[in-house]
Simulated assay, not measured.
Amino acid sequence: MLRRVADRRAFPLRSSTRGPDSPTALRAFDTNAVGLVRVTQAALPLLRKSANPTVVTISSSAGSFWAVTNPDRVGRTPKESARVVVRLATLDADGPTGTFQDESGEVPW
């Protein structure tokens, strides 16, 4: 039985004045979006056997317009980030779902 899956994917896009080319953009999408679906689907048979199946998808705030334009927003260490992941992965069945969370709670996306 599998109770929790934590998944973090990253495929950085190198910055240029023209942006990424199509193959690079497709690789990034495949890694960051489709990869999440693949990992979740692979875990589903075991998650279905759990009384409280949990999937925690880990993301950086770099994709959040709110986070990158908020002057009061500060970065955190890997240790601080791990605390957030552990907190979310150990919530009971009544915990938040379908939201982006950090150490302070829900993050506007």
Rank of each mutant, 00 (worst) to 15 (best):
V5S: 00
G95Y: 00
F65C: 06
R73S: 09
P20N: 06
V56M: 01
V37H: 14
G105L: 10
D21T: 06
L88G: 04
A51P: 02
A62N: 15
D92I: 02
R38C: 11
T54Y: 00
L2I: 10
R38P: 03
F65Q: 09
A93T: 13
T90Q: 07
L47W: 00
L2V: 06
S64H: 05
A28W: 01
R87Q: 11
A67N: 11
L88W: 02
R9Q: 15
I58H: 01
G75D: 06
N70A: 10
A89V: 06
W66R: 14
Q101C: 14
L44W: 05
I58R: 00
T31D: 05
A33M: 15
P108N: 01
V55M: 00
V107Q: 13
A42E: 11
R87V: 09
A67S: 15
A93N: 03
S81Y: 06
W109S: 10
D21R: 08
G63Q: 07
R48L: 10
T77P: 05
A6Y: 13
R8C: 15
P78A: 13
R18V: 01
L44D: 04
L44N: 06
G19P: 00
R14Q: 14
A10N: 14
R8S: 15
P71E: 02
G98I: 08
W66C: 08
P12R: 07
A82Y: 03
G19W: 01
P53I: 04
A67C: 14
G105N: 12
